[in-house]
Computed example of a mutant assay.
Amino acid sequence: MTVRPRTLAWVADQLADGERVVRVEVLVGGITAEMRRLSVAGPNGETRALVLRSYVDVIDAEDALTREAAALSMLTATTVIGPELVGVDPVGAECEYPSLLMTHLPGRPVLDDAGVEARIPLLARQLVAIHALRPVERPPKYTTLTTADTVITPPGADRRVWAAAIDVIRGPVPSYEGRYLHRDFQPGNVLFDGKNQLTGVVDWASPSWGPADLDVAHCAVNLALLHGPSLGLDFVAAYEAAGGTLAPSPADRYYWLVRDPLACSEDIHLTAAAWRAAGRLDLTTTAAEQRLDAYLTALQELSP
């Protein structure tokens, strides 16, 4: 699919003199946005790549693009590598749909089982660095993404385990020390080169302020879905080994850890579809549901 006419005209306005878009490539793996890789040629034959994110029929597009633009602008003065902001039209004033244009980072998400043990410490160290960021203006407070009444227990799951976890999030929210959160830090949003070196983090549409435990829980459940429950638990340990700080109370840690698997239950079919589109054809909805159930069961052993 090519870029829509008004959006293409807006993109052209963001380019340097003499530059033009010469190729458009659809990027796969996202759930809420259309993603395009744009090859841009300069007047002297040099080329560079940009990424165009467009939200089509997304209610909170303005908020997401405003947050992402702020995050990318902030990252330029830090050691955390993210795309550079080129331009943003958060309300679709000039584009057909709300859009953001940014630089393209080298590398790709690596979702294969091979080498995951070596990648987990790299993921953990990167997340510790993100949580150390101190923006001049804090992003909005986190949202929990689920309630006790909206969790969907997967078919064939251990209903007693799920009921016990749901009861946990019916309780009071633990106190926490606020941190800068990526809020969708997971293997699909972290890039590696061919030498297994981390080259950057993408998808900064939901930065929030809240407990580090939430980001850790989110990455852990995605690792559990991709590679098995033990790898999710390994990430939690790797985060602490990298210097990250989680909730001091075992009960509080358990509260945050179970929140993300429960939230994942509501859109597990979309998550599985995104992983398949990114190359993990084995992750059917049924397979993802089974791994989610196995991971929540494994977490129960951490229950105080």
Rank of each mutant, 00 (worst) to 15 (best):
I169V: 11
H218K: 11
L299S: 09
A212C: 10
D267G: 06
W256G: 03
I59T: 14
W204K: 08
G171F: 10
R67V: 02
S249R: 14
M102P: 06
G200F: 05
P90G: 10
P187Q: 00
S54K: 00
N222W: 00
E240N: 05
V168G: 02
K141D: 15
V201L: 11
D158M: 02
S249I: 07
A129P: 03
N196I: 03
L233F: 08
T271P: 02
D13L: 12
T103H: 02
R259D: 07
P155C: 03
H182D: 09
P83H: 03
L38F: 03
V236M: 03
R6C: 00
A237Y: 00
G82I: 08
T66P: 10
T79A: 15
R67T: 09
P187A: 04
L292S: 06
S303I: 02
T32R: 12
V168P: 01
D63I: 12
V51H: 11
R108S: 15
V11W: 07
T103A: 06
L299K: 12
A287I: 11
T103L: 00
R160P: 08
P174Y: 07
Q300S: 13
A12K: 10
L123W: 11
A263D: 02
C95W: 00
L281E: 08
A164Y: 01
L100W: 03
L214D: 00
A33W: 02
G279V: 08
L127G: 01
T199W: 04
E68P: 03
I59H: 12
A148T: 13
E94W: 09
P172G: 06
E266T: 15
V80N: 06
D267M: 15
E25P: 03
L15Q: 02
E46H: 15
V40T: 03
Y55H: 01
Q197G: 05
H269C: 02
V168F: 06
A237R: 15
T285K: 13
E19C: 01
S249Q: 14
A224R: 01
A277I: 00
A288H: 06
V80M: 03
V216Y: 00
E301V: 12
R125Y: 08
L72R: 05
R37Q: 14
V26R: 13
S303P: 04
Y55R: 00
L65M: 04
R67D: 14
N189D: 12
L191T: 06
L65R: 05
L226N: 10
L145S: 13
P174H: 06
D184C: 01
G178N: 09
G210C: 10
A272D: 10
G92H: 01
S54N: 00
R291C: 09
A247V: 08
L8W: 01
I130F: 07
L105P: 12
L75W: 07
V202Y: 09
A165L: 09
V161A: 10
V28N: 13
P90K: 04
Q290A: 10
A288F: 02
L123E: 09
D158I: 05
A164Q: 05
G42C: 01
D213N: 06
V24I: 14
D17Q: 13
A77T: 13
E137L: 07
E84K: 13
Y97G: 01
V116S: 02
L226Y: 03
L15F: 06
Q300C: 02
